[in-house]
């Protein structure tokens, strides 16, 4: 067997062993992940949320990690919540926030928020109570930090976090109140 074949054989054996061990451990590990990542519902509007703020009565879904799953909401619901003076949190960076944001929103940049400890995260959120409804948003529907930010908040115990998928772009286009 020439050298190239031997190297190839070694590579194949190592890869196969890793694959087999990985698959076996993943299947018995309670924290194991599905073989194919499914993000198809990441941006999908939660149909139960369309009724607006009454959806507080909507059953809260818990993730397997034990926190309440944030809910994706459409612009109508976001506007209703805005009119009810619900807190809006903008996950974009400081300079983007300054260029324009939903009126009265608080800037919690995801990049700064994510690496912090739960205590520091709570500090960044100030005195916002855990039971309060929070609407997380970012640039627009191709932007994911609204989702990531919402999950970070849910993980530290906020149990009514909504994600306004349409984001600042849609809000601004509809002529809803903004600060510029």
């Amino acid at each position: 067997m020439n050298q190239r074949n031997k190297i190839l054989k070694e590579v194949l054996i190592i890869t196969l062993v890793s694959l087999i061990i990985g698959l076996i451990v993943n299947s018995v590990n309670p924290k194991g992940i599905p073989l194919v990542r499914d993000d198809s519902d990441r941006f999908k509007i939660d149909s139960a949320s369309v009724q607006g703020s009454e959806n507080k009565q909507v059953e809260k879904v818990k993730t397997k990690e034990g926190f309440v799953k944030p809910q994706n909401i459409p612009v109508e619901t976001a506007k209703k919540l805005f009119d009810e003076n619900v807190i809006f949190i903008d996950g974009r960076e400081d300079f983007e926030f300054k260029e324009g944001h939903i009126k009265g929103a608080i800037n919690i940049p995801y990049k700064e928020f994510y690496p912090k400890s739960p205590e520091e995260k709570q500090k960044m959120l100030g005195d916002i109570g855990k039971e309060k409804t929070i609407v997380s948003y970012c640039g627009g529907d191709d932007c994911e930090i609204s989702i990531d930010n919402a999950y970070e908040m849910a993980k530290i115990g906020y149990d009514d976090v909504k994600i306004y998928i349409g984001g600042y772009r849609e809000w601004n286009e509809l002529g809803y109140p903004v600060n510029k």
Binding site: K6, I7, I13, I14
Partner: peptide, 25 residues
């Protein structure tokens, strides 16, 4: 799922010198 095991196995192999060509590749 696979990469962490590939890393740990190659890490061990490259130190011990077993399958050195394959693991370093």
């Amino acid at each position: 799922i696979v990469v962490p095991y590939l890393e740990i196995i190659c890490g061990i192999l490259i130190i011990t010198g077993i399958y050195l060509r394959g693991s370093s590749l």
